[in-house]
């Protein structure tokens, strides 16, 4: 995992990506009890001009140059399948801009804050997301005020009410 994170940081250093943050299952398990997962999801901001279409081409080229294989939509970086997800909506853009800088295995890296991960889970709303969101309420340390603020600004209050109704 240390090598994976170091190689991911190389994408920042070579300016192939502008920003990244760990998201998805591994991002969630930073805050809650882990369960099984098989990939590392990264939310990324690709270094592309405003008029250019967002393309993962440069990342795939970098992977090829490093001898990394692809598995479906993942690139296997030092043993871990990594999925690069360009920011896809305003909530995710804001989540990435407010990412936390942390250190894992002695390597500087970035992760989405719990309040944003929770809001994204609520927005995505798959059974898996609802299950993990419930665990966040039971296990994670987060700011209720910040979470409420995000819900309000991204019109997620109705979804939150529905989630609470189901959870009861």
């Amino acid at each position: 995992m240390k090598k994976t994170l170091q190689k991911i940081n190389e994408l920042l250093e070579t300016k192939i990506i502008r920003k990244y943050a760990i998201a998805g299952g591994l991002g969630q398990f930073y805050y809650i009890e882990p369960s099984v997962t098989y990939d590392l999801d990264l939310i990324i901001d690709i270094a592309a001009d405003k008029n250019q279409l967002i393309s993962l081409e440069q990342i795939y080229q970098w992977a090829k140059n490093n001898g990394y294989k692809t598995l479906e939509e993942h690139i296997v970086i030092e043993g871990i399948p990594v999925q690069f997800l360009p920011v896809y909506n305003d909530l995710v853009v804001e989540a990435l801009n407010n990412r936390s800088e942390i250190e894992l295995y002695g390597v500087k890296t970035f992760i989405l804050k719990p309040e944003y991960l929770m809001a994204i889970m609520l927005q995505t709303n798959r059974p898996k997301d609802r299950e993990r969101l419930l665990k966040f309420f039971e296990e994670a340390e987060f700011s209720k005020e910040e979470f409420q603020d995000i819900l309000q600004r991204f019109n997620l209050e109705k979804k939150y009410s529905e989630f609470k109704r189901r959870a009861e």
Binding site: F29, E33, P34, S35, V36, Y38, K135, E138, E139, A140
Partner: peptide
């Protein structure tokens, strides 16, 4: 049970990765 899971949520990430790999093997 809630206390147990809450405590497990606090273990270092590096330990959590080891757990994930063990769970992958079981899976």
């Amino acid at each position: 049970k809630i206390r147990y899971h809450k405590n497990r949520a606090k273990i270092p990430f590096e330990e959590k990765v080891k757990i994930i790999i063990e769970l992958q093997k079981i899976d």
